[in-house]
């Protein structure tokens, strides 16, 4: 009896060692890639000098933050990041639900599959490619819009990459274009899963299809919408770096409406004079972003604990 428990214990020890060895590569990676940079956030409080290293650089207190928040950049990048994200979140929910409902109406399986495949296509290409596509439409000299639409109509050509007023719409459109397929399939499963007898009952009562959708489908999707919406709110301090860096092609006259926290941090990082403010902005993003994730997750947990991150 005793030897058996000893054996079991030994077995247990053995599996533990195996498990720890399996974890090892991942743990090392997380430490280097994720945890050390977290400590690296202290550079926001330092006067960065690459020759002295992070730890060796002199302390600067809150100077970097003071400089950052004195510029109007701090306000612009926060405003842009938040406003674009709010628009994207709402639009993605509305379009996702709309497309999922409409897609579910289609009887032919072949057609349904083809539509779904096409809608998801932009998701597989990189933002660099998307920037090329946008350029083929918007280029001043060679662009499709100027040459094949505005000119034949006798309208004046537009210098798209120099006119900030169009860019909130352009970026919103491109964002929707790229992610529509993804947002559709997020809701498709919930739409398909709705009990068909509900619709049959409504039909007997004489409800039109549109009424059925407004009174049955949409209310039943509401919980999913709220949860997915809140989860995206958790990421509201992070912008789509590629969208804002690549698509406007770093045109300086557009910065007012295209610069977000992520592009600001990147641009500051590549210049020697701004790296202090850049690291302060990165710190600001990490911490506020962290608080927002915690907040939104607490709300999600209250509404639907299964969907919460934790």
């Amino acid at each position: 009896m005793k030897t058996k428990t000893v054996k079991v214990k030994k077995k247990r020890k053995e599996s533990e060692i195996v498990f720890l060895l399996m974890l090892l590569p991942g743990v090392i990676y997380l430490i280097i890639n994720n945890y050390l940079p977290m400590f690296g956030l202290i550079i926001a409080f330092k006067k960065i000098n690459f020759s002295k290293g992070i730890l060796g650089s002199d302390w600067a207190g809150f100077d970097n933050f003071k400089f950052l928040f004195k510029t109007k950049d701090a306000w612009i990048i926060t405003r842009n990041t938040l406003l674009y994200n709010i628009v994207f979140i709402v639009l993605n929910l509305v379009l996702g639900v709309l497309f999922a409902i409409v897609l579910n109406e289609i009887r032919s399986n072949v057609l349904k599959k083809s539509y779904q495949t096409i809608l998801l296509l932009p998701q597989v290409v990189s933002m660099v490619i998307v920037a090329y596509m946008a350029y083929s439409f918007l280029s001043y000299e060679n662009g499709f819009i100027n040459n094949s639409i505005l000119k034949p109509l006798g309208m004046k050509e537009v210098s798209w990459y120099k006119e900030p007023k169009y860019w909130p719409f352009i970026l919103t459109f491109i964002q929707a274009w790229k992610s529509i397929g993804f947002n559709t399939i997020l809701f498709l499963a919930s739409v398909v899963g709705i009990d068909t007898s509900l619709y049959e009952a409504a039909e007997v009562d004489g409800a039109t299809r549109v009424q059925q959708i407004m009174k049955i489908t949409v209310p039943l999707l509401k919980p999913t919408m709220i949860v997915l919406g809140l989860l995206s709110v958790g990421k509201i301090f992070y912008s789509d770096f590629g969208l804002f860096l690549q698509v406007p092609m770093s045109s300086g006259s557009l910065f007012n409406v295209t610069q977000t926290i992520d592009t600001y941090v990147y641009r500051g990082m590549t210049s020697v004079t701004n790296i202090g403010m850049s690291s302060a902005a990165a710190f600001y993003q990490s911490f506020v972003g962290f608080l927002v994730v915690l907040g939104s997750n607490a709300l999600v947990r209250k509404l639907d604990s299964d969907s919460a991150l934790f």
Partner: peptide, 10 residues
């Protein structure tokens, strides 16, 4: 690591 990260600069 899903909740918090060190940001681009670090």
């Amino acid at each position: 690591t899903m909740l918090f990260n060190g940001g681009l600069v670090s």
